[in-house]
Simulated scan of single mutants.
Amino acid sequence: MSTLSLKLPESLLLRLDQESRARRLTKSAVVRAALERELEPAKSARATSCYDLARDLAGSVRKKLPKDLATNPKYMEGFGR
């Protein structure tokens, strides 16, 4: 295994130290796990739902539509003719 040196701000080093103590792991093990998670191929990009892609648009049209549009049968009268 190779060695890597890096500089961290004191606040991040403190958080790393706290996390390593909480998990009872070395700082190196915590950093390796974080890097593996961060650099893992984006599985979530492949499993993204249509809602996730349009989340900012969801409900944006609702202001002009009736609240019972999906449940009230009167809105379906004449549909498909």
Rank of each mutant, 00 (worst) to 15 (best):
K67N: 01
A45Q: 07
R32H: 05
R24T: 05
K74G: 00
S60L: 09
L57C: 07
G80Y: 01
A33E: 13
S49T: 15
Y51C: 03
L39P: 03
P9R: 15
L57N: 12
S5C: 01
A45V: 06
D56F: 03
Y51P: 00
R37P: 00
S44E: 10
V31S: 10
S11D: 15
P66K: 12
R81V: 00
L53R: 15
T3M: 04
L8W: 05
A45D: 04
E10Q: 13
R24D: 15
L4T: 13
R32G: 01
P66N: 10
A42F: 09
D56Q: 11
T71L: 02
A54D: 08
R46L: 08
P9D: 15
A33C: 04
A70H: 05
A22H: 14
A58H: 15
S20G: 01
S20M: 02
A42L: 11
E40G: 01
M76E: 12
P66D: 03
R46P: 00
M1L: 09
A54H: 11
Q18V: 04
A22S: 11
A45S: 08
A22F: 13
P66S: 08
K43D: 09
T3A: 04
Y51W: 10
K43W: 06
L14M: 12
A54Y: 12
T26N: 07
S11P: 08
A54V: 13
A22I: 02
S20C: 09
L6N: 02
R24E: 15
T48I: 04
P66M: 11
A58G: 05
F79W: 09
V30K: 04
L8D: 02
C50N: 10
L14K: 14
D68L: 02
R24W: 06
E10K: 11
V30F: 03
S20P: 00
G80L: 04
P73H: 03
R21A: 11
E19P: 01
R62A: 12
S5D: 05
E36N: 08
K67R: 10
L14D: 14
K64L: 08
E77N: 06
M1G: 07
L57I: 07
S44R: 15
A29G: 01
R15T: 05
